[in-house]
Design a protein around this nucleic acid. Sequence first.
DNA 1: GCCGATTGTATCGTGATACGATATTAACCT
DNA 2: AGGTTAATATCGTATCACGATACAATCGGC
Lengths: 146, 146
Amino acid sequence: MDDGRTESAPLTKQDFEALARFRFGIRRYLRFSEEAVRSHGLTPQHYQLLLALKGFPGREWATMRELADRLQLRHHSVVELVDRAQKQGLVDRAPHPPDARAIRVQLTAAGQRDLARLSALHRDELRRMSAVLALPTWEGPEGAAG
Amino acid sequence: MDDGRTESAPLTKQDFEALARFRFGIRRYLRFSEEAVRSHGLTPQHYQLLLALKGFPGREWATMRELADRLQLRHHSVVELVDRAQKQGLVDRAPHPPDARAIRVQLTAAGQRDLARLSALHRDELRRMSAVLALPTWEGPEGAAG
DNA sequence: GCCGATTGTATCGTGATACGATATTAACCT
DNA sequence: AGGTTAATATCGTATCACGATACAATCGGC
């Protein structure tokens, strides 16, 4: 149990408050997201899936494995998620020529539309919540950063 | 006034990538948190509870209602959470003199210890993940700093 | 001191969903 | 051909927040 790894200084009350504030920010953001998303008939997971596709670096589709990484899920759970989303007409499976084992999960027109609306809401909310969601600054004894 | 680009401009591919990257960051952070926390025998919810207490602005305890707000849960669900945490010896119930209906949920010595260790890990990880967890900058065509 | 509102507690069931375990199929690569 | 990887399929399990509902204690106003 005792790993005795104390390379950093013990946290101050300020540090705890900063950590808590950040976590609170995340909770509030996810909470907002959930309500926004559900009011559009989607689940948070669906939205995350759509966003991971449209927001994939450089392209707008991904394979199951890539999704598992981006969503931090077992690839096995991703299949279930994609199944559900496909049943709702949000995403699509397409062949992946360079490797026939893999497939491309991509957005349908409906998925695009829902995602665009929801993402706009999310962007606005992120702007609004910048105070709570900003990373802690960890001001040390050295001096202030601004 | 409606300055246009803030609220209704359609999102660019860059915007989607920024949103997705941020969400990815959150997922990774929570994933890290979960593993770190579980390896110490706690659940993510327990850690959040402890952190909300120790990180409560100005003090180190909170009432059920306050916790419901900070954790974004129904006050009713907080009771269950506190029960579980108390059963594990992490938190404690103490009377709240100014209002006998309310109670003070506070950390036990064990809770303090676990929280201190875990929070240090979290702080380090936050530092490491600053690139993914930083808020999107939303650079518009006119180039404005938030 | 009564009454409505608030705070916490208790219980039961429900829904959502990620996961582990396990197996199968197909395609890849050497 | 053989070993590996990607996707799929099933089944069961665990977690957990929640709604609904009720009750007890306390507070505050009058």
